[in-house]
Amino acid sequence: MDYILNVTGYILEGSLITFKLYLATAVFAVLLGIFGALGKISNIKFINKVLEIYTWVFRGTPLLLQLFFAYYGLPIIGITLQPFTAATLTFIVNYGAYFTEIFRAGIESIDKGQYEAAQVLGMNYRQTMVRIILPQTIKRVLPPTSNEAINLVKDSALVAAIGLGDLLRAAKVVVTRDFTITPFIIAAIMYLLISSVIVTVFRQLEKKYSVYE
């Protein structure tokens, strides 16, 4: 029992990195996604094109490759990042690309009549987006966003590949040291717990936003 507590404590320490990475990515990737989506639906051709390339590249190549690129690749051209910085930036930009597409599709699914109603009532573009379109978009993008939120928990384990001591890596260290399978089981349980919390949070959000159904 003591052994399990010990190992759990050690793995929990590793999970700190996972949590930090998760939080930073969740907040900034969502923000990036909102602005990316607004840019994609804008009439500015140049921005459309840039964002098109952005989502194409970051959704079309492996996250692990992007991670390697940021950590091992960039130093070659003189940009050296700390492992955690490299990981966080990569995750934000990668997930931002997915959120851009999810939010764009969400915004575009809102009926044209909503824009027209807002326009004839005298609202400007910002008021229309903030008060009318985006609140309705939130409800529609909750399910796909929930998927991404769970993916992010699992993808965070990739940072072990650039030497960050996250939850999974902490478990693996103990497995190698003690030659026992227990740490992996503990790690699996932790991932399940985190995912369950996220699923619950999103279920509550969906409930909250279903009042106007």
Partner: peptide
Amino acid sequence: FQGFNLFPHK
């Protein structure tokens, strides 16, 4: 409008 276009979330 023909289709009302009320704001459903309000």
